[in-house]
């Protein structure tokens, strides 16, 4: 039952992406509207999927990589909707949704059974810590999408070659503000994610910080975004440089999320 819900939401996101891509090509209003509705339906179904998983397991659905990937995908779409409410960038979905789709597709190749939670993780902190960390990262993913669009648009303006995308992409100003807004929401979430993790670590293992690979890489990611936010706020960094740094940050997120789990292992691996 839960896997069917998973597949339905994946299908909805896929259709939505097609809608957004067609909108990019044809500029028909209804295509972007259809894309938004399909994304919304997919999001509701995916929420339902996570609830079903959670109820069945009796804990926050994040006990294995399959669930983690899906929870991350859900967080990204959630962040997308929150930012879209403010910015309404019609082509953003064409870039954000594929990321969620890739995560969900990878998850399908994994073990989908509901695993019992090892005793060390049986705590309310699990839900709080992971939700904060995942949502924080999700906002950074949207910032990444905005940064990519920014760089495309900036290139066209600098080269004075205005391709067919020029009219379809929003202004540099809007894309830059999207990135900034994503950071100002995502950064506190991630910070609290790390803090709650430390508190939980202290109560569960007796130490706030244990240099577990995921902790280390999260810290690296945190520093990248801290530097970006700092540079933006103090010396007024913006535009191309900020966009590139946000893309570097996205690389760090990917590695923290997948690389650490698949290569480095440690306390946070879902095994």
């Amino acid at each position: 039952m839960d896997i069917i819900l998973h597949k339905i939401s994946l299908l909805m996101y896929a259709f939505a992406t097609v809608g957004f891509l067609l909108y990019l090509g044809h500029q028909k209003e209804f295509l972007s509207r259809a894309g938004s509705w399909l994304t919304g339906i997919g999001f509701v179904v995916q929420s339902l999927f996570l609830v079903v998983r959670g109820v069945k397991a009796g804990h926050h659905p994040i006990s294995n990589l399959f669930e983690a990937l899906n929870f991350f995908a859900w967080s990204i779409v959630c962040a997308y909707f929150i930012l879209q409410y403010r910015f309404r960038i019609k082509v953003l979905g064409a870039l954000v949704l594929p990321i969620a789709i890739v995560l969900m597709t990878i998850s399908l190749t994994l073990d989908t059974t509901i695993a019992p939670l090892i005793p060390a993780l049986q705590s309310n902190w699990l839900g709080i810590h992971t939700t904060l960390a995942f949502l924080g990262n999700a906002f950074f993913v949207v910032a990444f999408a905005g940064s990519v669009l920014y760089l495309v648009q900036e290139r066209q303006l600098k080269n004075r070659h205005l391709g067919s995308l020029f009219h379809r992409l929003p202004s540099l100003d809007v894309l830059d503000r999207l990135q900034y807004r994503s950071l100002t929401i995502g950064f506190p979430l991630m910070t609290f994610g790390i803090i709650t993790g430390a508190i939980w670590g202290a109560s569960a293992w007796g130490s706030y910080w244990s240099w577990d690979p995921k902790e280390t890489w999260s810290l690296i990611t945190w520093f990248i975004y801290a530097a970006l936010l700092h540079a933006r706020l103090t010396i007024g960094w913006r535009g191309r440089k900020a966009a590139w740094l946000s893309i570097v940050g996205f690389g760090a997120i990917l590695f923290t999320f997948l690389g650490v789990n698949l290569i480095l292992g440690g306390l946070h691996s879902y095994n």
Binding site: L157, S171, L172, D173, V174
Partner: peptide
């Protein structure tokens, strides 16, 4: 048109 794509509004 170019100004609008740079500055937004």
């Amino acid at each position: 048109e170019l100004a609008k794509k740079i500055f937004g509004e």
